[in-house]
């Protein structure tokens, strides 16, 4: 794929999201959880970029910061050349129609006291996308897109299963004609057969409406199914970005290698070289100096402890932040 020629829809520059933590004592300096610490990436129109990483690495925080659900500490986010973080409340409200989100927990993402009709109607009313008389038709159309029947309109969320609720959530996001949808662990709470249905639905909708997805997940099989490009995060930093095939076939960063080797293979006789990482993820309040991964990296050298590795383009369109990526055994 020639991503370089594609149009950039979202550009994230040096995004930082620090959350203050309660101080133990008055005299100590104020501490912060560095949930996202200076990350940059871009998203091309019509693609699916996945962010993977273990829990606490900052992937969801990145999504929330882009949407300004939590105000980022520092950095810039440009959507179609427009600086999102510089917009005032009113301008931001208008722009929100273009940026939508699908959440993880289908049981918490719908107001239990609203019927599907009210949910969809409210979305359209807030963004004023459809005139009142046409809304009913539009609702039925939306339900059709996500594979729900017309009778669903007058029902409450608790009358649906998890997968169906997720479809309602998707219909709500689609109701305002978005261009970019952030899927925050959108299928993680569903069981595997339903995951496949929802993933295929998302893929079809992407084709149909030329949507761009920022797909946040910890599940590598899901990521492999849906992504065009994959970004791996570790402790608030980007460690590797590449096209999906490239990343899964020849991961360059030791962390990505370890992550990929943890995917279960449905063949008990197959012997594999698993990379088992030692220890736990360090605290994001006081992350290690140098490369954040050096405390657990089996290949770490002295330089890794001192110097923070920059994100380098080793192969075309394949970026990695590791000092010794070239010398690693593949």
């Amino acid at each position: 794929m020639e991503t370089a020629e594609k149009k950039i829809i979202l550009q994230v520059d040096h995004l930082k999201q620090y959350f203050p933590v309660k101080k133990d004592s008055f005299f100590k300096p104020k501490a912060y959880v560095k949930a996202v610490d200076d990350i940059s990436f871009e998203l091309y129109e019509g693609e699916t970029l996945s962010i993977v990483g273990e829990s606490g690495c900052g992937k969801s925080t990145t999504g929330r910061a882009i949407l300004r659900l939590d105000e980022p500490t520092d950095g810039k986010v440009h959507y179609m050349g427009q600086d999102i973080l510089g917009l005032n409340k009113k301008e931001m409200r208008k722009l929100r129609g273009d940026l939508q989100v699908i959440f993880q927990d289908p049981f918490a993402s719908l107001n239990p006291r609203q019927t599907v009709k009210q949910i969809l109607n409210e979305a359209m009313a807030i963004q004023e996308v459809v005139d009142k008389p046409k809304r009913k038709d539009r609702m039925l159309e939306l339900l059709g897109y996500v594979g729900l029947s017309a009778e669903s309109l007058d029902r409450y969320p608790h009358e649906f299963s998890g997968g169906q609720r997720q479809r309602i959530g998707i219909a709500r996001a689609l109701a305002v004609d978005p261009k970019l949808i952030i899927c925050d662990e959108a299928v993680s709470a569903l069981d595997v057969s339903i995951q496949a249905q929802i993933l295929n639905l998302l893929k079809n909708l992407q084709k149909q409406f030329k949507l761009t997805f920022l797909f946040i997940s910890h599940d590598l099989s899901v990521v492999r199914h849906i992504s065009d490009r994959v970004m791996v995060m570790y402790l608030g930093k980007v460690v590797e970005i590449a096209e999906k095939k490239e990343l899964f076939d020849s991961p360059l960063h030791p962390y990505t290698q370890a992550l990929l080797s943890s995917i279960p293979v449905p063949d008990p006789t197959l012997k594999r070289d698993r990379v088992i990482l030692k220890g736990d993820v360090p605290s994001p309040i006081d992350p290690p100096r140098g490369c954040r991964f050096h405390t657990r990296c089996p290949f770490a050298v002295e330089k890794c402890k001192q110097e923070e590795p920059p994100l380098r383009e080793l192969v075309k369109n394949h970026f990695v932040s590791c000092h010794i990526a070239e010398d690693l055994p593949v």
């Binding site: 409200r93 929100r96 939508q100 989100v101 959440f103 719908l110 709500r172």
Partner: peptide, 22 residues
């Protein structure tokens, strides 16, 4: 802190709607 509040915020609802209706 429930997700449907975030969902309605990301649709662009103002605070009054969020508080009164949700």
């Amino acid at each position: 802190r429930l997700e449907y509040i975030d969902a309605i915020r990301s649709l662009g609802a103002n605070d009054l709607i969020i508080i009164a209706k949700h």
